[in-house]
Design a binder for these strands. Sequence first.
DNA 1: GATCTCGCTGAGAGCTTGCTGAGGCGGAGG
DNA 2: CCTCCGCCTCAGCAAGCTCTCAGCGAGATC
Lengths: 226, 226
Amino acid sequence: MSNRVLVVDDEPNIAEVISMALSYQGFGVETAGTGRDALDKIGSFRPHLILLDVMLPDMEGFDVAERLGAQHSNVPIIFLTARDETADKVRGLQQGDDYVTKPFSLEELVARVRMVLRRTGKAEADDVRLTFEDLEMNDETREVTRAGAPINLTDTEYRLLRYFLRNPRRVLSRTQLLEHVWEYDFGGDARVLETYISYLRKKLDPHGEPLIQTVRGVGYALRAAR
Amino acid sequence: MSNRVLVVDDEPNIAEVISMALSYQGFGVETAGTGRDALDKIGSFRPHLILLDVMLPDMEGFDVAERLGAQHSNVPIIFLTARDETADKVRGLQQGDDYVTKPFSLEELVARVRMVLRRTGKAEADDVRLTFEDLEMNDETREVTRAGAPINLTDTEYRLLRYFLRNPRRVLSRTQLLEHVWEYDFGGDARVLETYISYLRKKLDPHGEPLIQTVRGVGYALRAAR
DNA sequence: GATCTCGCTGAGAGCTTGCTGAGGCGGAGG
DNA sequence: CCTCCGCCTCAGCAAGCTCTCAGCGAGATC
């Protein structure tokens, strides 16, 4: 059985996107659009973790958190908040809680969710070690090696590679990659992706077979050459 | 029992073509030409999914969607829209919704329909793996093998073969193939098809018996030689 | 068997898609 | 304030794919 996450956001698009990303990674997911709704669903769904938008139509996310605390003391919460609401504005962080500022990339969000679950000891078998062929990644130390040789990656390169490692062999579309690795409202030139694929290949391939295959007109896949 | 789809488009030709493609794939289909008509039929037909043209004679597709939301909250909608109406113009996407720009290939449309149904958990049996004789196709990784040997296909070759695999043994007419694999208003030389059949045979047959049979004067079929 | 029609395939033009090197910009750290 | 590093943009180049065309071969018809 996998961990359950309740997503509370009044923007259906956002709730949807987050929900898809999480269920893709094997989490059980339910969504709620209002504070009331959230409080209702907590009883039946019994999530291990709650993703909670700070701004909700009927009440502040914090109020939800407080009422929650009264009932189901120990469910950790990750708050979703706009970037300009500074960190200290996020009051009421209990032990185990965390927050993420919008806009975020789905990769980042999923990473936070895993981290909080691990921290609060509610995580299932954790996949901290990701491997494919002779490529290894440790998501706790952020170390990456190929055939034993250490590889230095920048943050973006790292998150891109991690998304590939979580979806090996599968063909990932440009859109999918941009949505997951970049911030979800990234509006810039889609060719960044190609640049980063190029960076990754340059760093990974000197130690062996090419691993990132181009599927022309569709996307990219992490797989061994044929 | 299979999934039901309501097709709403005021162009009878388009509605017809889509309807045929979907019923061919085992979906239950009804069509409506106006917004009023659509709202009427939803009650009796109770579709699992709605294909909705954005431009309708009596009202905007979005209005239909809104009224719908009021009544039958959770039916996902796929909007059909002209290519130049940019993505963000497609407002009001609810959870589970999607959109497709015209012109599209029927293969693409069917793929979207399946995806949305799967996403909203209303899908029937999953068909990610397609096989025929010793030929195998995995639609997630886009890997194709014959007798275990991997085969590299370009995008068009892949989509053509997939359509064959979804309709094995059946004789498929040129028109049918062109409509499904190419964009439905493809105006070019119909002989592309022959070229691609030739490409496919060249790639598939070295590993065994010929699989794509010509039915002279009619079309092609995927079946073992006799 | 002759003729005609339909289908097959090799070659190649043109276009789309992807790759990569160079550089500007901005933030972090000294 | 200056420097360095990582992120993103841009433009030119390369490669791959799609489609066209034409000539040939194989079936069909009489």
